[in-house]
């Protein structure tokens, strides 16, 4: 199991579209993916769960990955957060 803290960088926060991109990316990996925030732990392959976090810009989240491809998954997901979701074209994550 891997844990890593990330900060939401994009101005609008983790709204519907970034949530959708995150779930889409996470679903490509076999590993289980959870997010810890404000003491909650949600299944991050559930878009409704991610949306209920309503993480705003500057919010700190902890990513938890557990599974055979956890390393690869963590790198891809952290990259997505680092990029601020903005310039990711949907083609890239289709």
């Amino acid at each position: 199991m891997l844990m890593k803290k990330v900060v939401v960088k994009n101005a609008a926060g983790l709204h519907a579209r970034p949530s959708s991109m995150l779930v889409q990316l996470a679903s490509k990996f076999e590993s289980e993916f959870h997010i810890h925030m404000y003491g909650y732990r949600i299944n991050a392959k559930s878009i409704l769960g991610v949306m209920t976090l309503a993480a705003e810009c500057g919010a700190e989240l902890e990513l938890e990955l557990d599974g055979p491809d956890e390393k690869k998954a963590m790198k891809a997901i952290v990259d997505l957060f680092e990029s601020g979701f903005s310039e990711m074209s949907k083609e890239k994550y289709r």
Binding site: A12, H15, A16, L53, A54, E56
Partner: peptide
């Protein structure tokens, strides 16, 4: 989602 008070959501 309503409880978050986040207008975008």
């Amino acid at each position: 989602i309503k409880n978050t008070g986040n207008a975008l959501m």
